[in-house]
Amino acid sequence: MRKVALRPGLEDELKDALSQLELWRCHQCGQCTPVCPSARHGGIRTREVMERASTGAMDLSMDQEIWKCVMCNSCSERCQLGVDPAHVITLLRNAAAQRGNRPEHFAEELKLFASSGMSFPRTGLTRKMRKEFSLPELDVSEGTMEELRRLISSTRLGRL
């Protein structure tokens, strides 16, 4: 696979990850932008983000634009060259999160996931409704939680 030449703006780990992708195929045609529901409202400009990722013109500790993607996969489906911008954005976000750049909403979600195995809180209403519909109680066992903790401790999520 061909390597992308990146300028120093993006650090090594990320360069490595991006070089595994098909980002080098991007010829900046811009077809990914008009299908983007966020771009239409002044959110992410997909083609420009691909350009900045290719050239390294991006400060991941501050960039806000990458967090305005709604992960609809429209760009990836539309790109005829197989660049998969949504996946590129996912990896950019991973690297940004490692630098402390992440939305509070997702940070809260991560806390809940790491402590309960679920991304939504179980409340009194949860129990009431589950009983009303004769559904089994919702429970993540201690054994499952222990497996989860061991699995994620060595990952980027574990380091956050």
């Binding site: 195995g117 980027r156 999520l157 574990g158």
Partner: peptide, 28 residues
């Protein structure tokens, strides 16, 4: 039922924070 199930490390927020954890948790 699938009692060993956890959150799928949903692909919008959580996977954006930890791609490697996503793959491990779903692989489990």
């Amino acid at each position: 039922p699938f009692p060993e199930g956890t959150c799928c490390v949903e692909p919008i927020g959580l996977r954006s924070l930890g791609y490697d954890a996503w793959l491990l948790v779903v692989a489990r």
